[in-house]
Design a protein around this nucleic acid. Sequence first.
DNA 1: CAAAAAACAGACAAGTCTGTCTATTTTTGA
DNA 2: TCAAAAATAGACAGACTTGTCTGTTTTTTG
Lengths: 184, 184
Amino acid sequence: MKHSEVKDKIIDTASELFYRKGYNSTGINEIIAEAGIAKATLYNHFKSKDEICIAYLQSMNSTFLRDIAAFCRGREKGKEQILAIFDFLQEFYQTSVFNGCWCIKTVAEVPKDNEGIRGEIKRQKNLFIQVIADLIGENLGTEEQHTSKVRQIYLLYEGAVSESHLHQADWPIAEAKRICEAVI
Amino acid sequence: MKHSEVKDKIIDTASELFYRKGYNSTGINEIIAEAGIAKATLYNHFKSKDEICIAYLQSMNSTFLRDIAAFCRGREKGKEQILAIFDFLQEFYQTSVFNGCWCIKTVAEVPKDNEGIRGEIKRQKNLFIQVIADLIGENLGTEEQHTSKVRQIYLLYEGAVSESHLHQADWPIAEAKRICEAVI
DNA sequence: CAAAAAACAGACAAGTCTGTCTATTTTTGA
DNA sequence: TCAAAAATAGACAGACTTGTCTGTTTTTTG
């Protein structure tokens, strides 16, 4: 395999396994077997399993932020673009890969003192909040103070992700969207 | 130690460790060391670690449901009793033991096919939804159809738990309460 | 084309884990 | 009181884990 492809292959394979099976339940040996590479190769690209975890989180997050922003901006201007984040979630929920929030899942699995991973997760959540803030600013005007609204929508989205996953039902997404309509 | 006390001691010790450190990060050896009992004693009371996990979840949940119901019913009748669930959460958040939702944490750690643990968690969430439904029925009248309202408040509560834990801040609790006021 | 870099397979260290078992002592209850 | 039950300590099996290291082969690049 070409050198430039190997790192991406590792991240893609690890991401699929971490997200589906969990971080601690996925071993290094499983990653290399699935990716079809040697163990020394993996440790040539990453110093530790934790480092792969951070690459996994970043990979998931950058895809997510790009996709949800594009999805919402594809809707007509105004409140529709904000409500669209729940339609995006509904579509994600329908796919076979949906398995809840990778951040919440990972936070639950790593010790409290793991600042590398926990810091990355906080950073991601703040980036997502910023994406919502941008959507609000573009569609509801920038004059007002929207901090509270942004946080509320963020809260609704996150609750909908967790609960639709836990109950394996999509009513949390529908209810979150309904509350969001009332909020904005 | 008396026979009748041993089982409770195991559950209490395991609960504290599971909730604080996580299920997979807490070993059997740690539980027995902390509880001051022999390994064979533990396996005399529980068939497996998973069985201790279920006892842990049940212990946490029964305490929680009892306390939150009592807390809310201590408030004056009406909407106050419903909003009180967020005050209850705020008080819980302030304590040093708060560490997010034990159900969400545990779900993230056990494989998808573990039906014993995952079934117990679903059961608990439905019991909590029923507690909210009772509060709504008592304080907003039973005539109307409150299914949607109950689910919305549940969603807000769960979101507030997760996000206050993740961000280590209490704004998610305050925002959830504000949305709840608008909903009811 | 040759040298450097990175791939490969896989053994190995050192540690973790759950659960079983033996053998002895303490507690309990009829 | 005395037998049954349950406690004790701790060795052990067997299977996992991450990460290192050796030695060989392939790929890349100046």
